[in-house]
Design a binder for these strands. Sequence first.
DNA 1: CTGAAAGCGCTTACAG
DNA 2: CTGAAAGCGCTTACAG
Lengths: 342, 342
Amino acid sequence: MSKSPTTKSRALGKVTLSEVAAHAGVAPMTASRAINQPELVSATLRERVDKAILELGYVPNRAARALASAQSKVIAVLVPSLSNAVFTAVLAGIQDALDPCNYQILIGNTRYSDAEEEKLLFAYMQSNPDGILLSGLTHSPRVQQMLATSRVPVVSMMDLSPEPGAMSVGFSQVDAGYAMTRYLLDKGRKRIGYMAAQLDERTLRRAEGYRKAMREAGLADPALELLVPEPSTIALGAELLGRMLAKVPELDAIFCCNDDLAHGAIFQCQRRGISVPEQLAIGGFNDLPASAWMKPSVTTVGTPLYQTGFEAASLLLASIRGSEVAAQRIDLGFTLMARESA
Amino acid sequence: MSKSPTTKSRALGKVTLSEVAAHAGVAPMTASRAINQPELVSATLRERVDKAILELGYVPNRAARALASAQSKVIAVLVPSLSNAVFTAVLAGIQDALDPCNYQILIGNTRYSDAEEEKLLFAYMQSNPDGILLSGLTHSPRVQQMLATSRVPVVSMMDLSPEPGAMSVGFSQVDAGYAMTRYLLDKGRKRIGYMAAQLDERTLRRAEGYRKAMREAGLADPALELLVPEPSTIALGAELLGRMLAKVPELDAIFCCNDDLAHGAIFQCQRRGISVPEQLAIGGFNDLPASAWMKPSVTTVGTPLYQTGFEAASLLLASIRGSEVAAQRIDLGFTLMARESA
DNA sequence: CTGAAAGCGCTTACAG
DNA sequence: CTGAAAGCGCTTACAG
């Protein structure tokens, strides 16, 4: 009550629920109900409490509520990158799905690193999240263990889990890789290269699809693959185009594991005077905004990014609420966007 | 102690500090110290506690700690967009600066909306953040009021505050807008258009710089400006190029308020057979990755995105720690990148 | 260096 | 519909 403001007290010095209650002439419990379950409070008292809140400028203390209720109202989201437009699109979907529910979203950027993912997950676990959204299917043993121990609902995004109990939302990366390769094959291309960076699990699964299609066509050749661990950028796409051509001069098509690489490869072709698609067909992945507008426009695989985030968050919400979860595994599919570059 | 696991108890059912302490044969206080200030605990006890933590799989409860210590170890960051590469670059800098300090970062996407900003800030205030990072200088009265009431340290990013006490990190948007216009003028261009989207405060300040330069050159003409409120995209850049040209056929240069618009405008020129920069010079803003690689490469203004985030977070940290904050206003400058498009 | 007591600001679980 | 009691899991502020 009478703490001198200069004394370093352990309290925040902010307005508390009790003060609101006192101001409104009710018990703290009633003030709490007026805020969280107003329908259980008589109109008169509810108004008195609302007035007190406004007059005092009351801001609820989330930590206290979390501690008392054992519910954090926190959802943790782990994505491998924020600079990659792919994941910001997924995040937009998540935000929209979660927006009405008043959850606090913890966004963690793992930077494609298992160690970072472990660190972030451990940090987030301390907030007792009500649910977790993860990118991809494969995680380190320690991450798997933390998840198993906590028994928090988890939804995986961007690929489909083969495990029966697991919740996942996305599409088959293998099938999508296969589809693009098949498309290039159908266009009559024979020497089709696969160019990939980052080497995350999705990139590798697209490579599987590529190999399957090439094998079926009797055109498989390891020399056609160029996979590097560096982060995927336009600059890298430009560089890899050069290396690819040096390795396989008779190349007639390239499937880039994503659009950044494809854009870089196309810019490089323009600088070298290689005509796309006449001399070299180029396919990308994810259909980033520039792909539709570049000249030549980029043939690529349209993927349900926003929707993946939206559906994954919705599934997680349903699971948190304990309602019967219809589909544990939501296949959103993909679309081959045939344009000018291939 | 003996709660049946089927009973819905108010507790989380997780291992607590007290259990760790009991397991290690010490008081809870000692276990707490072993975790937070290990140097104050004897080696023997420290090891016993560490062992107990491992064996029990203890995860600290952040809410309890926050409540008891009146310190949240949370920093809230509000950015107007996540799909815009500008802000993800800023975020990367923030993450790197904050990484060693074990803060939890709350990333809020205001979507360029004052209402959203208010909503997010109010939600974040409930977590009692130790500090706040804001984008831009201008905010709604309610946001200003929340900030003032809370007395939480705030650092503004992306522009320089004229207010003496305020902390800000960025560069002068007006000066940068002026510099690009001056550059086009120096190239001998006369009918220089300004094309802008979103109409956020930065876009408007760049417009001020543009107008100043045009006025000084005696070439100012309101007809040369095309400002629209829609979000900035490549598609919009392509569309605005058309509208601009229809309005001012003799246009010989365009300053686009950002690179997305510039890319769209250039793609549109390529589709219409307009040569850049011969017939039309095009300048952009922010130096996104594609700008260096496109053909023609894009003349633009390089801005210290990552650094802004890094320095802003560092300044905030210093302010939270109460150390003498050297510069309240950090001007990181900008760089005109002269390339092929202008 | 170690610990017993009290309290942070809420909500749960009961009563009435 | 309203409220008094107890407790969530930690840390502060004191003692020893």
